[in-house]
């Protein structure tokens, strides 16, 4: 465990908590893409199946359980409890365009052709693009609430920190995983445009609003 990874995990956790808290306190999931949340649920489920098969550390297991529970709780709040506030008219991204290629790529490019390994690979590929329905929703409505922006920012920071973690691990531990690195770079790049808007607008107290 190095500082980049720890801060990355904290940022990831913070993002999930910000989102859950926002939905719970406002009793509304307006502006949030349920499709992105479903994809993240699928990402955590397929990746953390190894909770049963391999033990890494208490930290690792606890975090996995927390991510799974928080993800399912978010989906429950969006699709059951506060379903009436879900803005599905603006959440129109076709997720099969992400899921099908992620499955195909996981079958083609993986470390080992075994069920758990392919599910892990699928989760890595899918995570890299899972935020697209949310970014699409923001671009469609042309704006995002500040709290939604904070959520997206924390999620982007998490991936950025993981990149630093991989650079560190490459020279300090001689450890690298090309699948995770390439997918992680793609994922971080997807947030770049948003980072720019976040820094130039949200941090200056303005609402994130795209030019018409």
């Amino acid at each position: 465990m190095n500082i980049f990874r720890l801060l990355g995990d904290i940022s990831h956790l913070l993002a999930i908590i910000i989102l859950l808290r926002k939905i719970w306190m406002s009793r509304s999931c307006a502006g949030i893409s349920g499709k992105s949340q479903l994809l993240f649920g699928l990402v955590y489920t397929t990746r953390y199946l190894d909770l049963i098969t391999s033990y890494i550390s208490l930290y690792n297991s606890v975090m996995k359980v927390v991510f799974l529970a928080a993800s399912y709780a978010t989906i429950y709040l969006m699709y059951v409890k506060f379903k009436a506030t879900y803005d599905h008219n603006h959440d129109t991204f076709r997720i099969e365009f992400l899921v099908v290629p992620a499955v195909a790529l996981a079958l083609l490019i993986n470390h080992d052709f075994q069920v758990v390994e392919i599910l892990w690979t699928f989760s890595i590929y899918l995570e890299s693009v899972a935020i697209l329905p949310q970014l699409f929703m923001v671009s469609k409505t042309g704006e995002a609430e500040s709290i939604t922006s904070h959520y997206l920012f924390a999620l982007g920071v998490y991936r950025g920190l993981y990149l630093l973690n991989w650079i560190y691990r490459f020279w300090a531990e001689d450890h690298y995983d090309l699948i995770a690195i390439v997918a992680g770079v793609v994922q971080t790049v997807l947030y770049c445009d948003f980072f720019y808007l976040y820094i130039t607008k949200v941090l200056r107290g303005k609402k994130l609003q795209l030019p018409a």
Partner: peptide
Amino acid sequence: ASSKGIHDEL
């Protein structure tokens, strides 16, 4: 070396 198959991250 590439540490493929070792998934110790979240």
